[in-house]
Design a protein around this nucleic acid. Structure first.
Length: 555
RNA sequence: UGCCCGAUAGUAUAAUGGCAGUACAACUGAUUUUGGUUCAGUUUGUCUAGGUUCGAAUCCUGGUCGGGCAACCA
């Protein structure tokens, strides 16, 4: 088990509340996504936080869809969000929608009108903005501000009844037009939208704004700790104002800093652009930082939870190094992934002194990290093999422990071979490598006494299965695309996906479990793509192995 | 130049007035039939100037730097 996780400041706050007997020691959190896009790693942090706190304090976490803007929302997103949360390994207490509370919210609004704390506004969006002032200048009152309670009630009812066009009227809270907090300068509570809502259909033509929906929803559900990201901090006085004026259950809002990861973007708006403009192949493209994307990439739920645990929670701006994410999946897959051999960039190797037509079956352990090797599989060996083109050099440098004229290496699970010669084609590239093998050096029964520095993987040419392999790299060329000059999309890494059509894998993969994760020895971790078929296998590379030779060679 | 928030190694995160610690990253070396893994080790830090205190990353004051706030988005 991992070491005890350090408590974050929210845990401290909740622990203190429980100790003081606040809400009778009850803890109820909520995860409140708007169903207008797919969940990403930033949401994963929030999910682990909210559900984690619920569990830790013997409480629960509600899933609530914040569906107050019918224009952007859709059931496709509602479904993907539920799937992603469950995949991450969490189960919500209750499933609610803000739209469940539309009738109640309307009644709340009427209450505020009756108390003289809300009024129907005639001005347009532009006029309201113009009268709002600036952070350094107070706002001015609109003529609508002095309407009578009776008139406001009448007009608000007419708004609901569809008597006005979009933009013609709004409902505003009457607070303080001179407040240094812009959100308190008579914020909008309701706007008119003749839009079809994914759940309420055409029942409503007025919809509550975030500020008038979120706190009230929390309160209705008796959420004790409402946790959101830092940009909502300036909304908190308003959140509290509505609750106080309505005299309803006092949920409390707390904020933490949103998660960022380098070499990617993490906002639904930007991810939506990448999808809509075809820069990626959908929300679940393995290059996307969405939950569905990293799942398809081969990341496990446990590795994501571990990542969230390691990154922690704070109120400070941050950009997490993507290498931490990669560490989390490597660490898990090293212990669990089935070892197989695959050749991604093949070149033919011929063992001149190996009998033509002969086939030996070698035995290879499935996972050396598991006690007993995790079982074994048979690996065919024959005269002609595929090896990695990068494993041969015509003029190898000093510390190159692979193949080159006169060099010896071991073929994994097989024999030690010596490179005797090579053949080039018209294009000048190496087309055949000729070797001899040492019959007494067979793996496990080596009596040759020959010492070699390197071990290489291979696939028997006669038995190789041709497959497609998708090699993924970071989606952006720069660490923080959002912080760069100009359009973030101009920093997309054009080499983020390399499709290899003619890779070869060993035959044991033919009967593999579609959910299984693999380590292709010396290459990295791979999983089946969801579009994979038995006779047309497609593998996605989750992450490479650490490669200290690449560093050495790059020097 | 209004209001709010933040600042601890390259990156994150702990230390809640009492030894600045952990992880990732980087670098050495050992082991290794994966240049993987594992093991041992190294490097690197409290934004700044004052103040309070026996003692300050922590409390106070000023400054600097970064972020948020003026959507009929959430």
């Amino acid at each position: 088990m991992s070491i005890e996780k350090a408590p974050n400041f929210l845990e401290d706050i909740i622990a203190e509340d429980v100790r003081l007997g606040k809400n009778d020691g009850r803890v109820l959190t909520r995860f409140p996504p708007e169903p207008n896009g797919y969940l990403h790693l930033g949401h994963a942090t929030s999910i682990c936080l909210n559900f984690g706190l619920g569990q830790k304090f013997n409480g629960q976490t509600n899933l609530r869809f914040d569906d107050t803007n019918p224009v952007t929302e859709d059931t496709e997103y509602v479904e993907s969000i539920q799937r992603d949360i469950q995949w991450l390994g969490f189960q919500w207490g209750n499933l609610f929608y803000a739209s469940d509370y539309f009738e109640q919210m309307y009644a709340f609004a009427v209450t505020l009108i009756k108390k003289g704390l809300a009024y129907v506004e005639d001005c347009s969006a532009e006029e309201i903005a113009a009268m709002k002032g600036t952070p350094t200048e107070p706002g001015k009152a609109s003529p609508s501000r002095n309407r009578s309670v009776e008139e406001n009630l009448e007009l608000f009812e007419a708004m609901r009844a569809g008597k006005f066009k979009e933009g013609e009227k709004t409902l505003r809270a009457k607070i303080d037009l001179a407040s240094p907090n812009m959100h308190l300068r008579d914020p909008l509570m309701y706007r008119i939208k003749f839009a079809h809502h994914h759940r309420t259909g055409d029942k409503w033509c007025i919809y509550p704004m975030y500020d008038f929906a979120h706190g009230q929803s929390d309160s209705i559900e008796q959420i004790t700790h409402s946790i959101c990201t830092l940009e909502f901090e300036v909304h908190k006085p308003l959140y509290n104002w509505f609750i106080e004026q309505l005299g309803i259950f006092p949920s409390q809002q707390y904020e933490f800093a949103r998660r960022n990861i380098n070499y990617t973007v993490m906002s639904k708006r930007k991810l939506m652009q990448l999808v809509n403009e075809g820069h990626v192949n959908g929300w679940d493209d393995p290059r996307m930082p969405t939950i569905s994307g990293i799942r398809r990439r081969g990341y496990t739920a446990a590795s994501i939870r571990h990542f969230c645990e390691l990154t922690g929670i704070s109120r400070r701006e941050n950009v997490i190094d993507v290498s931490l994410l990669e560490y989390c999946i490597r660490e898990e897959l090293n212990k669990t992934a089935t070892r197989r051999m695959a050749v991604i960039n093949p070149v033919k190797l011929i063992i001149d002194n190996y009998e033509e037509g002969k086939v030996e079956m070698l035995t290879g352990e499935n996972n050396p990290e598991v006690e007993g090797g995790g079982g074994t599989r048979e690996i065919p060996f024959s005269r002609e093999l595929w090896i990695e083109r990068e494993d041969f050099m015509e003029e190898p440098p000093k510390k190159f422990f692979r193949l080159g004229p006169g060099l010896t290496v071991r073929l994994k699970h097989a024999y030690i071979i010596k490179c005797e010669s090579f053949v080039k084609n018209e294009a000048g590239e190496v087309s055949e490598i000729h070797c001899t093998y040492f019959p007494e050096s067979r793996s496990g029964q080596d009596t040759s006494g020959i010492q070699v520095k390197g071990t290489m993987h291979f696939v028997s040419a006669l038995h190789a299965l041709p497959v497609q392999v998708n090699l993924y790299d970071r989606l952006f060329k720069v660490e923080n695309p959002s912080a760069e000059e100009g359009d973030f999309k101009s920093y997309i890494n054009e080499q983020s996906l390399t499709v290899v059509q003619n890779a070869y894998v060993e035959p044991a993969l033919r009967d593999a479990d579609p959910e299984e994760k693999f380590q292709f020895i010396r290459l990295g971790y791979f999983c089946f793509d969801q579009d994979s078929k038995r006779d047309q296998m497609i593998f996605n590379r989750t992450v490479t192995l650490k490669d200290t030779w690449a560093k050495e060679a790059g020097k």
